[in-house]
Design a protein around this nucleic acid. Sequence first.
DNA 1: GTTCCGCATGAATCGATAG
DNA 2: ACTATCGATTCATGCGGAA
Lengths: 292, 292
Amino acid sequence: MEIKTDLFLGDCENELKKLSDNCVDLIFTSPPYADQRKNTYGGIHPNKYVDWFLPITEQLFRVLKPTGTFVLNIKERVVNGERSTYVLELTLEMRKQGWLWTEEFIWHKKNCYPGKWPNRFRDAWERLLQFNKDKKFAMYQEAVMVPMGDWAKTRLKSLSETDKTRDESKVGSGFGKNISNWLDRDMAYPTNVLHLATECNNKNHSAAFPEGLPEWFIKLFTKEGDTVLDPFMGSGTTNFVANRMKRNSIGIEIIPEYYEMVKNEVHPVELYLLEPKTKYEKTQSERRIAIR
Amino acid sequence: MEIKTDLFLGDCENELKKLSDNCVDLIFTSPPYADQRKNTYGGIHPNKYVDWFLPITEQLFRVLKPTGTFVLNIKERVVNGERSTYVLELTLEMRKQGWLWTEEFIWHKKNCYPGKWPNRFRDAWERLLQFNKDKKFAMYQEAVMVPMGDWAKTRLKSLSETDKTRDESKVGSGFGKNISNWLDRDMAYPTNVLHLATECNNKNHSAAFPEGLPEWFIKLFTKEGDTVLDPFMGSGTTNFVANRMKRNSIGIEIIPEYYEMVKNEVHPVELYLLEPKTKYEKTQSERRIAIR
DNA sequence: GTTCCGCATGAATCGATAG
DNA sequence: ACTATCGATTCATGCGGAA
């Protein structure tokens, strides 16, 4: 099976228009959060965020297959002592576009950013909003099952050592209580809470999320040979993981430095490049170059 | 210190009107979830939920002290394959009433019940929405500190140079300067993700949440002698915990069976009853009976 | 080979000060 | 008044080198 990685350099909304309808099985992305990453992405004001994002979700709706899934990793920031509401508003507006808000997964960030404030604790979670076009969508639950033999170990591992210490310090939390219920099973299904640490010691590139995050959703919502799209590619984590898992992938990035970096790191045999017309003066079909 | 537990039997909105302004330090409650089925307890249709709840939150706003906090335990149900949006809408509408949406805590239900659906995993989390009247509110962070991770033990031996230089070089957020402040620290501040198991072995009453949940928020947002309100008392978990923790509490319950059950279980010395006027034909002040 | 231990760093937030 | 910048504060993790 030949696996392709198509990379687009340019504005997300514009580049998406070059994709045909119903061609993507999974969209997994983490857009720039409002007023964050100002130094790189310029920062969208919380009040403008929904207006900025809706034209993009409209394109995403178009390119997603009817059986496909859109997973949006996002978290609202604190402004003036209060959580911004743009994620809530965005969800409501996306439903008006036809999206179904199927589920909300929680990414529990085991090693969240430190800090202390008089009225707030550390923020240790982010949203993973699942949207679909149709009530019927592809889902391969078995692919993310946890082997039962390792269940206790894995489950305990999912709660970090620190969490365990804290559990034991509580009275009667009895974590091992229900393990006996599972002894006669081989595999267990996971829940909608994911326990993952952020990757903070990656020298080359600092990804917004760990590889385990897209990996889990790629397993769950696609099979080999399917196509994964990340319209805010960044350092390309989604695309690298998709490639490794034998899924085709499409990445869109507006910052040339990131685009170049990903382009150079994707395994050449499996890379297709689509650069802006202005750069090479080629037609769209000509611009699809397979490097071998 | 004399600790009182005031119980009201009746409709939540009506009973709340009997309370004076700014008299409550913490509101902790888990309202009946929206339900399509009619004629069940709390069988409010998802489409009507916001309209039904807003008059109640208006009263809650009135009775809460300016320094007080409202913690709402809620989770939207799945209706027709989709998550209902009433919690999102409620949050937005409450802000129009003057509430500040300060924070959203996650209750990770470690032992949620097994189950299998073709397009959905087990729901292992619920929201704990924190609302305030003012940016300044009472918060006792030290009361909920947790054991620090093991890393601290080894960390303290070294006092490496980088810890100091990082601050001097001013590279983003620093660790450095005041390492001596926490040299002997063995406790850390928690995050906004709570790991608690549901209580499944409670014979008498099936509580919506484990005692650890109100306990944590009562520790965090009140001190001894303060007043806690649960406008949807149910089996009285909030009130029992508050009482044990030497906080006054108020409970409102519309179902007589629940009301009677809680009334009989609260320690008599500390119980004040406020029953509907129609039942005993007494004035409000007369109805305040201390049983000793 | 394990285990241990040092270490960089991460979608942060608040309050004060400056333009 | 209103926005922009800056300093102060704080944990946990996985990697890699050492024991």
